[in-house]
Nucleic acid binder design. Structure first.
Length: 422
RNA sequence: GUGGGUGUAGCUCAGUUGGUUAGAGCGCAGGAUUGUGGCUCCUGAGGUCGAGGGUUCGACCCCCUCUACUCACCCCA
């Protein structure tokens, strides 16, 4: 080990080849799918005024209370590395008045998010999300379309065994009533609750439903169910969504305990759960947030969105990689003169496509062939003094070992044809 | 923030009750073949054994502290 190696910060993991190829393949599939549904990409700032997240995610949530990378910059402003994407998208939607032009109401993003938590399997301090938001559509058809699209994403990636869990949290008309009911229930059952849930009772009672403490689960088992408390409109919205999903052949479970960790959700919330994610189980989650745009200073605008945890998604994607494109041939110069002759050819060929490799060092033919073999090229073009004198290369087929003479003038065409064969 | 596990070569890991030159496989480099790869064989490079302190004649091994990684709790994508 060297002295004082500088290393990455804890929880900030970097993606090296060949993993980076797999990442891009999955990203590409996501982009293609989303753009097929009319989504357009947004590339947003990673750093935002702290206030944005405090207002959107909710001041009482764990994310805001203890998980944000927040610091004061040189002009004394409090800034935060974004812990999630939706707040920024909504901020941008308002800031640039994206709602004024109808065609741009479906937006997606891919990028890093930051949360100051202890890293573990499937959870990192810098992690990545693929997310999308739809603005201006209140219909449950929108909820259904988005969920069907997500199911397609998993299907496209050959991921099996993800379960869709659904719930409705109601709207501003019925949720406060339910909150009161629940608060009331919790205060009557304080004895059975953990410390956290007792504290939550007042500010964020819904979270108690979601507590993993077995004691709490028991205490909450008889609590009022949100499903019973929904108003007429919310009930219809949710029923409509469920019917569409059933018609589309998408399996789902209604989970009245499903409460999101962020405060802005209304009506539909969902999670796609999977095993094989370590102690984590959510690979994607989201829902409807009909009030947030307005709360962040925009026009009243219903919205629906989701985020996929990219690292978690990658854990579910099999390790099989689409074969990488390999160079067609290795150029093997056996002298300085040969190298000088081959270099312009090499540069010219690779301008069009990945065609050749070329060693700039004087190595033995043997070691160059070894390298060519390892690189998986189909041909080796050997050029030594003899070939140079004849203005040709010795073309060796690496599989059949057959060798033929190939004039320099024909190399380009020869390789270009072989390039398209594979 | 709390708890457990693990730090030995580029990678994956051995290392006996504490004993003198710390090993293997893979990978890398070279050779066996004056200009011919994969298989085989030979050779080589590469380690302050995570860091510091302690016990001991002697520490990779035992003790303490720190640190990193990792898994889990909390919570979340």
């Amino acid at each position: 080990m060297k002295k004082v190696q500088i290393k990455t910060v804890k929880g900030f993991n970097e993606v090296l080849p060949p993993e980076s190829f797999r990442w891009r393949q999955v990203e590409d599939k996501f982009r293609n799918l989303l753009e097929g549904y009319g989504f357009a990409e947004l590339r947003l700032a990673l750093l935002e005024p702290t206030e944005l997240f405090a207002r959107s995610i909710g001041g009482e949530t764990d994310i805001v209370e203890k998980e944000m990378y927040t610091f004061i910059d040189r002009s004394e402003r409090s800034l935060t590395l974004r812990p999630e994407g939706t707040a920024s998208v909504v901020r941008a939607y308002n800031q640039y008045s994206l709602g004024k032009s109808n065609e741009i109401n479906k937006l997606y993003y891919i990028g890093p998010m930051f949360r100051y938590e202890r890293p573990q399997k499937g959870r990192y301090r810098q992690f990545h999300q693929l997310g999308a938001e739809v603005f201006g559509e209140e219909s449950f058809y929108q909820d259904a379309e988005t969920l069907v699209m997500l199911a397609q994403l998993f299907h496209t990636l050959s991921i099996k065994g993800v379960e869709l869990h659904l719930n409705s949290l109601g709207c501003e008309a019925c949720r406060p009533l339910f909150r009161d009911q629940l608060k009331d229930y919790l205060s009557r059952h304080q004895a059975g609750l953990c410390d956290d849930c007792r504290r939550r009772g007042a500010e964020n009672p819904l979270r108690a439903l979601d507590c993993k403490n077995p004691q709490c689960r028991e205490a909450v088992a008889e609590a009022p169910s949100i499903g019973d408390a929904l108003c007429c409109d919310c009930r219809q919205h949710f029923a409509g969504l469920c019917a569409l999903l059933a018609d589309a052949g998408i399996a789902f479970q209604i989970n009245p305990r499903l409460v999101r960790g962020l405060d802005y959700y209304t009506r539909t919330t969902f999670e796609f759960l999977a095993g094989d994610l370590g102690a984590q189980n959510a690979v994607a989650a989201g829902g409807r947030y009909d009030r947030l745009v307005e709360e962040l200073g925009g026009q009243p605008t219903p919205a629906f969105g989701f985020a996929v945890g990219f690292e978690r998604l990658m854990m579910l994607v099999g390790s099989e990689v689409a074969p990488l494109t390999l160079p067609v041939a290795a150029l093997l110069p056996l002298s300085e003169e040969a190298l000088r002759r081959l270099f312009p050819l090499h540069v010219e060929l690779n301008r069009r496509a990945q065609m050749t490799t070329l060693s700039f060092q004087h190595k033995s033919l043997k070691s160059q062939l070894k390298k060519a073999d390892k690189d998986g090229v189909r041909y080796a073009l050997i050029v030594g003094p003899d070939e140079l004198a004849q203005d040709e290369a010795l073309c060796r087929n690496m599989r059949t070992k057959e060798q033929t003479k190939l004039p320099f003038a024909e190399i380009g065409e020869f390789l270009w044809e072989r390039y398209h064969e594979h």
